[in-house]
């Protein structure tokens, strides 16, 4: 702990680039994110619409799995998101702890429920995909099991966050939990893979497609990008609300509120 504090102090003394400090200012973040929001929302809607139409109407069916293969266009993006959002949450939490940056605390707090929702989606689509493919709703496949544990980790962070009344204390405590979880995540993944090979030697997984033709992977790419854009939009919208609540005494928030055009 002493070492960590010393490190944190050393880091504090180092000059960080100016944008880093600006990012720490809730007002600057609020104004900048306000400019990004329409672009993010628009690109998310565009990417998801094209991706969805392509995935459902034009992509060919898989020669082995038939049309249930189309679930991959939901499963893979949500699984990607669930994992990277957890990482984002832990990094934001660590920045909040080390530099005492309010915006990072807000980001970490707002990312948790969104990440949990995508982990849930990845699990459900994985289970539904499993029924026609493996013949069972739930199979203890390594990926599904890791995703389930990831969902539990998210639920833990959310539960801790809501259990602590004090906002700052809640942010710090859940940041620690998220960091511990991130260190554990590769270990959990490795253990589950090891355990899985022990119990079920042969099971083919969703992403084990050696050569996917372009008309299959291009819509997948679009869907992944669309999901990421949508996630960023959701995250920023949630963060902006949280910032307004936290900074309600600040002058710029009062000015903003008096302006009745802001909806």
């Amino acid at each position: 702990m002493v070492k960590v504090v010393a490190n944190a102090k050393a880091l504090k003394k180092q000059k960080m680039p100016q944008w880093f400090y600006q990012l720490g200012s809730p007002r600057w973040f609020y104004e900048l994110s306000g400019k990004w929001l329409p672009w993010l929302g628009g690109s998310a809607a565009l990417l998801l619409t094209i991706g969805l139409v392509w995935a459902l109407l034009f992509a060919p069916a898989d020669y082995q799995q038939g049309n249930s293969f189309r679930i991959i266009y939901l499963h893979v993006p949500s699984a990607f998101l669930a994992q990277s959002v957890y990482l984002l949450m832990a990094i934001a939490g660590a920045i909040g702890l080390i530099w005492k940056m309010k915006v990072a605390e807000v980001v970490a707090k707002c990312a948790a429920p969104i990440g949990a929702s995508y982990a849930f989606l990845a699990l459900v689509t994985g289970a539904i995909w499993g029924k026609p493919t493996w013949g069972a709703w739930w199979v203890w496949d390594a990926r599904l099991t890791s995703m389930l544990i990831l969902l539990f980790l998210y639920l833990g962070v959310i539960a801790l966050n809501s259990a602590i009344g004090d906002r700052q204390m809640a942010a710090k405590a859940s940041a620690i939990l998220a960091i511990v979880g991130v260190i554990n995540l590769p270990i959990i993944k490795y253990s589950v893979d090891w355990w899985n090979t022990l119990h079920q030697p042969a099971s083919f997984t969703l992403t084990e497609k050696p050569a996917m033709p372009a008309e299959m992977w291009v819509p997948l790419l679009l869907m992944v990008l669309g999901f990421y854009a949508l996630f960023t939009w959701t995250l920023l919208t949630r963060c902006r609300t949280e910032i307004l609540e936290r900074e309600r005494r600040a002058g710029w928030v009062c000015d903003l509120l008096s302006n009745s055009q802001i909806k």
Partner: peptide, 12 residues
């Protein structure tokens, strides 16, 4: 959906 309609549509 070639017999998989229930699965595909419930996922979506």
């Amino acid at each position: 959906m070639g017999g998989h309609g229930l699965y595909v549509w419930s996922s979506y």
